[in-house]
């Protein structure tokens, strides 16, 4: 039924990861409502959802920049993206 969407395991895993993150945030939100709003180092008031968005958007740019400037393999940008995610949830 979904063959027209041309699914592959790697792309499916990416979406499973993103939707899992959103689901985890939803569960945390039901237990601790309010989104853990705070003012971070970038001077922005962010909630947990904002921090996830900034993490994902920043990671996309990290991977694109690496692909454009260096190329594959992508272990380097993966490490940088994880570090960026940790920084976002810790300080932003």
């Amino acid at each position: 039924m979904l063959s027209w969407m041309a699914w592959t395991w790697p792309t499916a895993l990416v979406f499973i990861f993103v939707f899992s993150c959103i689901a985890i945030l939803a569960v945390i939100e039901t237990r601790s409502p309010g989104g853990d709003e705070r003012k971070g180092v970038l001077g922005l008031t962010t909630t947990r959802g904002d921090r996830l968005f900034i993490t994902l958007l920043g990671s996309a740019y990290i991977f694109l920049a690496w692909l454009g400037l260096v190329g594959t393999p992508l272990w380097g940008p993966l490490g940088i993206a994880i570090a960026w995610g940790v920084f976002c949830f810790w300080k932003v």
Binding site: S3, W4, M5, A6, W7, T8, P10, T11, V14, F15
Partner: peptide, 20 residues
Amino acid sequence: IPLMTVVNYSVQETFGNNLF
């Protein structure tokens, strides 16, 4: 759903006939 389809297309080659 269109966005997910575009992501799937972006890592594949197709010559039509739903073959990727």
